[in-house]
C-alpha cells in the first residue's frame, strides 16, 4: 500500500489499540457498577497501583510475563480486601457512603505509592519478545500495541465466558437481579459480590500492566486514564460491558482520526459524542440504570 493509505490504516489500528486499553480500564469499572451498584471512584487508583506492582515485579524478577500475571492478582487481592473490610460495612448506608469511601481509598492508594516508590517517574521496559515492528504491505506497526489489542480481546472473551457460560456467572447475574432471593436459596451473596469486586480490580490491574511500558509510571497515572475511562462508562451506559466495549473502540478511533483530520478539536470529540448520546439516551448507549 502507498504511504498515505498506510498512514490511515496505522491511525485505525492506533484507535483500536487505544480503545482496547480504554476498555480494559472501563470494563472493570462498569462491571462493578452493573453488578453491585457501586460507583468505584478508586478504580483508576487500582489501575495505577497495578502499574507500580508491575514495575516492582519486573525489578525483582526481570520477567515481564511474571509481572503480567502477578501484578493484576496482587491488585485484585487489594480490591478484595477493600470490599471485604471497608465497602461491605458501608454498603447498607447507600451510595454516598460508598462514594466517599472509594474516594478515600483512592487517596490512600495515592499516598501509599508515593511512600513506597516516591514521586519520581518510573519506567517499565518492554519484554524483548514484544519489541520491534511488524511489517505488512508497507505498514510498520509496533508489536507491543498489537499484543495489547490481543490481550484485551482475551480478557473480554474470558469475562464473557465467565458471566454467560458458567454457573458462577449465572449466580452473579441472579444476585444482581434479586440478591434477597439468591440469598434465600443458600448462596453466599456477599461472597459473590466480593468476587465481582476482585474481578473488576483484576481487570484494572491487567490494564495497568498493559499500559506501563507505554506510559511513565507516576502518581498522576490514575488521573491520566481515569477520566477517559469514566467517560466510556457514562457514554456506554453504567453497568454495560458491551456498551463499554463499543464506546471504547469509538473513542479510540475518534481520538486517532481526530488528531489526523481536525487536530485542534481532537481532545473534545469524546465529550461531544458523550453529550449527543446522553441527550438522546440519558442512561447511556446500553445503560439500563441511572
Amino acid at each position: 500500500m502507498d504511504s498515505t493509505t498506510a498512514m490511515y490504516v496505522a491511525q485505525g489500528i492506533h484507535g483500536l489499540a487505544y480503545g482496547m486499553i480504554l476498555f480494559l480500564v472501563a470494563s472493570g469499572l462498569t462491571m462493578i457498577f452493573g453488578m453491585m451498584g457501586i460507583l468505584n471512584l478508586a478504580h483508576a487508583a487500582f489501575f495505577m497501583l497495578s502499574a507500580y506492582f508491575s514495575y516492582q515485579a519486573l525489578a525483582m524478577t526481570g520477567n515481564y510475563w511474571i509481572a503480567l500475571l502477578a501484578a493484576p492478582l496482587a491488585t485484585a487481592v487489594v480490591g478484595v480486601l477493600v470490599e471485604r473490610f471497608l465497602l461491605r460495612k458501608v454498603h447498607a448506608f447507600g451510595h454516598v457512603g460508598e462514594l466517599l469511601l472509594t474516594v478515600g481509598v483512592s487517596l490512600v492508594i495515592l499516598d501509599a505509592v508515593k511512600a513506597f516508590w516516591g514521586t519520581e517517574s518510573l519506567y517499565v521496559d518492554l519484554p524483548e519478545s514484544l519489541k520491534g515492528l511488524i511489517h505488512v504491505g508497507g505498514l510498520e506497526y509496533p508489536v507491543y500495541r498489537l499484543f495489547v489489542i490481543g490481550l484485551a480481546l482475551v480478557v473480554l472473551f474470558i469475562m464473557a465466558f465467565l458471566l454467560y457460560r458458567t454457573r458462577l456467572g449465572m449466580v452473579v447475574r441472579a444476585a444482581v437481579s434479586d440478591a434477597d432471593m439468591v440469598n434465600a436459596l443458600g448462596i453466599n451473596v456477599p461472597l459473590v459480590f466480593m468476587l465481582v469486586f476482585g474481578i473488576g480490580t483484576w481487570m484494572a490491574g491487567v490494564a495497568g500492566v498493559a499500559i506501563a511500558p507505554i506510559l511513565t509510571v507516576f502518581p498522576g497515572l490514575a488521573d491520566q486514564m481515569g477520566m477517559d475511562a469514566f467517560l466510556v462508562v457514562v457514554t456506554g451506559g453504567f453497568g454495560s460491558l458491551s456498551g463499554a466495549f463499543i464506546i471504547s473502540l469509538v473513542f479510540g478511533e475518534l481520538s486517532s482520526y481526530g488528531v489526523q483530520f481536525i487536530s485542534a478539536l481532537a481532545p473534545v470529540l469524546m465529550f461531544v459524542l458523550m453529550a449527543i448520546i446522553l441527550v438522546i439516551k440519558p442512561t447511556g448507549l446500553f445503560g439500563e440504570r441511572e
Binding site: 498512514m7 496505522a10 491511525q11 492506533h14 484507535g15 489499540a17 487505544y18 486499553i21 500495541r145 499500559i211 507505554i214 506510559l215 491520566q224 486514564m225 477517559d228 481520538s255 486517532s256 482520526y257 481526530g258 488528531v259 489526523q260 487536530s263 481532537a266
Partner: peptide, 10 residues
C-alpha cells in the same frame, strides 16, 4: 496525553 501514536504517525 496517554497516546501519542496518532501524532507520531502524522
Amino acid at each position: 496525553l496517554t497516546d501519542f501514536a496518532p501524532y507520531l504517525t502524522k
